[in-house]
Design a protein around this nucleic acid. Structure first.
Length: 908
RNA sequence: AGGACGGUAGCUCAGCGGGAGAGCACUAUCUUGACAGGGUAGGGGUCAUGGGUUCGAACCCCAUCCGUCCUACCA
């Protein structure tokens, strides 16, 4: 496939489909003036994949650079947030690949236990089937089908985005390797006493009928009520008023607590109350947990339905009475309310309490209520037996690593605080889920003895127990229990002999959003520390969320989500990638506005057209002809210098993860320097008769465009490959082309200084013409008075450029040229420009214009002089700054003198 | 309650110690042989408010106001 492709006769792709509808066609060559991404994108992605350019390990001598993709859930289509995180990673990987690293970007997907199971159950429900109708095995078959279907969708989306993934190493959180790692971790933690089984208050999702971890609960403000209830004392001496937001839980009350130093209640401590409706006798206890100031100062205690009450209950040895079942329905303990749903029961109980005179009052009360992150159901604090990970010892290791400097480097830094705050206050992690889709807990119970055996397999458990009546735990593990092994388990861990593990672990960087620092990042860090003794990745790059144009979070219920495929269809993947990656600043949210994508699309089109221009002027030029040494023009030297600077800057910025700034630098270089200045300058040689100069400019143009495409390639892989393949080039693909580095040999300081003078002159003439309404199409005379011989030399060497840009009919330059009649003028550094426009412009108008200029110069001079006359400034400011100010002072003053002289001349 | 982030041109946002920037929108002008999804020129901002540090503050510190989010919650 390697070839030296000269200016091929094959047309640039994109023109095929759009040629007919494209009215703005160049009549000469039939090439469209707009880039159509559709044809190019699929073609090149196929080419890259077929040739295995993205495969890791092909450069065994090179330094490795690795990233694992945050595995998307197999719940459905990828959203715009995935586009962001994936583009950022692809940019890093593509850059590093071009820089010669042995790059690995490992793809994969997450089974997403509760999320996927909920979706499949939803689908079944639409067919009138529940998972219980199917049974565990049949249901799981359905989920696997779903998984295969969406994994396929995800692959297509990755391809559309142009991601340079190594598919030969793709993993799934439920595949055999990952499952083995999960069991291994469970067994090891169990053996160390860091996994235990216990009866605790956990967050119960009655809709999904499973336990959740603390961070899977979202608190939302809800307008509720505060119910005041009166519990009578058994001895008839009075009553105690308690308040609750959930009156139905009173059925499970086993005490009322007051503060031990609350004088209102000292006499009552130890007495017995009669729980209304149920008639149970419950004690009045004293506990410091109670806040004397709040409400009545007495709290009903329901150990089975409130985490705080649970703790109080343990301290006072109170019974735990669970009044609900796993679907949130009242159970036998609820007496007359058995069988009612918890919300119906609340109404019924409230009515009954009111009738019995127990309910004294109801106040409006705004409070935070926990909701399931997945099902949306109101969370029930629920007493049940679950598996937990003891977090303290694991957290400590991770905290120590962070404190002694061997930890993970957070970018931006502030997220380290977020992480530390969580891990320093972490509580035990409830890891068992009453679901079917997931890693089944590797614990077996003996039906005869009730003993528990934790092992890698049933065989091992049997061997260890010597029993053959073992039954495996029905529950599965929290999805994040497997995701947190992702960076190392995907590379072969726990097999320490895995060559991938040795070579690509730790990963260089993890890219993810701030919304899953707790869920995922923190857990990867502590499990990696525990099991590999290393941090999982050197850097973690945290990005913000993609929001809609109004700054709202994208959500299904609002229907304000953006489908990346639709955007790609309309604007191209490169435009979307460029917009979303360069539109962000570290850790900050991004508002998605279609105008921004249009702007990026226009930028791609600008590159397309600049390349069209180049190709039209590179006919017959082959790769071997390119020679950028020897006698180059001022502009040739200058663009090579700007390319040099840009390459260095882009390299630095990408390493610093400063995508927004990178985008700006690339945009300015390509649009301003390359298109607006260099291409215009180059035309003179390309259309000229000086064959040597033409040939050099062709070389510089081809070289510069080639390097520019390489710099833009990580951001816009498709268009850069499409154009690059048509330019004179060496190699099979731009994806493996060498990354442009700063080259001292390309520098020519004199030429750069010359170019700056030329640009100043051209800008000044344009300004004057615009100000007095002399259009560029109308030719004018131009006289330049140079300040000295050197400047004069520069002007004379480049008079053809100046003439062209200033559109002069006659051009004269000298140290003291004859300046007849009334003329317009401007002063630039080192020279004075004169345009004889006496026929076109009133002399008073010109004097007024010049006086305005003097005013601007005056204020500049004043500002600088004020600064320089400040003793503090001269004494304390850095020498470099003072020097700069002095130079400005001299420059502005000199210009002002010349303009003043000009005014005098015109007057007199 | 604690914490984080943000308040800069009409809009969306960069800049984060030394002359206020970009894109879009707006005004004027140009169909010049890469590009009208374009060229050229221009208007528009007491950089939230009040103090402080500094020779110098949009930028650093403190306070206040407004907005967004996170964590923890008193029944």
């Amino acid at each position: 496939m390697a070839e030296h492709n000269n200016n091929s006769s094959e047309e640039l792709s994109g023109q095929q489909d759009s040629a007919a509808e494209n009215a703005a066609q160049d009549s000469k060559n039939g090439m469209p003036t707009t880039y159509d991404p559709k044809a190019a994108e699929d073609k090149w992605y196929r080419y890259w994949i077929e040739n295995e350019f993205f495969k890791a390990g092909l450069r065994p001598e090179a330094e490795p650079y690795s990233i694992v993709i945050p595995p998307p859930n197999v719940t459905g289509m990828l959203h715009i947030g995935h586009t962001l995180v994936n583009t950022l990673q692809d940019i890093l990987i593509r850059t590093k690949r071009m820089q010669g690293y042995d790059t690995l970007w490992l793809p994969g997907t997450d089974h997403a236990g509760i999320a996927t199971q909920t979706r499949v159950e939803q689908k079944l429900r639409e067919q009138g089937i529940s998972r219980y109708d199917l049974g565990r095995e049949k249901f799981l078959e359905q989920v696997w089908e779903w998984k295969e279907q969406y994994a396929e969708v995800i692959h297509e989306q990755w391809a559309k985005m142009g991601l340079s993934l190594d598919y030969s190493r793709e993993r799934f959180t439920l595949d055999e390797g990952m499952s083995h790692a999960v069991r291994h971790v469970f067994v090891k933690l169990y053996e160390k006493g860091l996994i235990y089984r216990g009866k605790r208050i956990i967050n119960w999702d009655p809709a999904a009928r499973t336990a959740l971890s603390d961070i899977e609960v979202e608190y939302k403000e809800v307008n509720g009520h505060l119910y005041h209830l009166r519990y009578p004392l058994k001895d008839g001496s009075g009553y105690i008023t308690v308040a609750t937001t959930r009156p139905e839980t009173m059925l499970g009350d086993t005490a009322v607590a007051v503060h031990p130093e609350d004088e209102r209640y000292t006499d009552m401590i130890g007495k017995t109350l009669i729980l209304p409706i149920i008639g149970r006798e419950i004690p009045v206890i004293a506990d410091e947990y109670v806040d004397k100031e709040f409400g009545s100062g007495a709290v009903k205690i329901t150990p089975a339905h409130d985490p705080n009450d649970f703790e109080v209950g343990l301290r006072h040895d109170l019974p735990q009475i669970n009044v609900m079942d796993e679907s949130g329905t009242m159970n036998a303990e609820a007496g007359p309310y058995q069988g009612q749903d918890r919300s119906d029961a609340r109404k019924a109980i409230t009515a009954d309490l009111k009738e019995q005179g127990v309910l004294v009052s109801i106040e409006d009360h705004v409070h935070q209520v926990g909701h399931s992150e997945r099902s949306g159901a109101v969370i029930e604090p629920y007493l049940s037996t679950q598996w937990f990970v003891k977090m303290q010892p694991l957290a400590e290791e991770a905290i120590n690593a962070q404190k002694d400097g061997t930890g993970v480097n957070f970018v931006p830094e502030r997220f380290e605080k977020t992480y530390m705050n969580w891990i320093e206050n972490v509580r035990d992690w409830c890891i068992s889920r009453q679901l079917w889709w997931g890693h089944r807990i590797p614990a077996w119970y003996s039906e005869s003895t009730g003993e528990v055996f934790v092992a890698m397999s049933e065989e091992e458990a049997q061997a260890a127990s010597g029993l053959n009546d073992l039954k495996q735990d029905e529950d599965v593990l929290d999805t994040w229990f497997s995701s947190n092994l992702w960076p190392f388990a995907t590379l072969g861990w726990p097999d320490e002999t895995s060559s991938d593990l040795a070579r690509y672990f730790p990963n260089n960087v993890l890219v993810t959003g701030y919304d899953i620092i707790y869920f995922w990042v923190a857990r990867m860090i502590f499990s990696s520390q525990e099991f590999t003794g290393k941090k999982p990745f050197k850097d973690v790059l945290i990005h913000g969320l993609v929001r809609d144009a109004e700054g709202r979070k994208m959500s299904k219920s609002l229907g304000n989500g953006i489908d990346p495929l639709e955007v790609i269809e309309k604007y191209g993947a490169d435009a979307l990638r460029y917009m979303i990656s360069t539109g962000i600043t570290a850790g900050q949210d991004l508002r998605f506005r279609i105008e921004k994508v249009e702007q990026a699309r226009n930028f791609a089109n600008k590159i397309w057209n600049a390349s069209r221009f180049a190709l039209m002027n590179l006919e017959g030029v082959s790769f071997e002809d390119i020679d950028i040494t020897g006698d180059l023009s001022t502009a040739d030297h200058w663009i090579l210098h700007r390319l040099n600077e840009t390459s260095r800057e882009i390299t630095r910025l990408i390493d610093a993860y400063e995508y927004g700034e990178t985008g700006r630098v690339l945009y300015n270089f390509i649009w301003d320097d390359l298109c607006d200045w260099y291409i215009e300058f180059a035309k003179l040689n390309l259309y000229g008769t000086n064959e040597a100069a033409k040939s050099k400019t062709q070389s510089v143009l081809a070289y510069t465009l080639d390097r520019t495409l390489r710099l833009i390639h990580p951001f816009m892989p498709f268009i850069s490959e499409e154009i690059w393949q048509h330019l004179p080039h060496e190699g099979e693909t731009i994806t493996l082309a060498a990354w442009p580095e700063y080259e001292q040999a390309l520098e020519n300081a004199e030429a750069v200084a010359e170019m700056n003078i030329l640009m100043d002159i051209i800008r000044a003439v344009r300004n004057i013409r615009a100000e007095v309404n002399v259009p560029m199409s109308k030719k004018v005379d131009l006289i330049i008075k140079a300040g000295n011989e050197d400047i004069l030399g520069i002007i004379q060497r480049n008079d053809n450029y100046i003439s062209r840009f200033c559109n002069t009919s006659s051009f004269a330059a000298g140290l003291n040229p004859v300046t007849e009649g009334k003329v317009m003028s401007a002063v630039v550094t080192g020279a004075e420009l004169l345009l004889p426009l006496s026929g076109l412009i009133d002399i008073d108008q010109e004097i007024a214009r010049l006086e305005k200029e003097v005013q601007t110069l005056n204020s500049e001079v004043e500002r600088v002089e004020k600064k320089l006359s400040n003793q503090g400034f001269v004494a304390k400011a850095p020498a470099k700054v003072i020097e700069e100010e002095r130079a400005k002072q001299a420059d502005y003053s000199a210009k002002r003198e010349k303009v003043l002289a000009r005014i005098a001349e015109l007057r007199g």
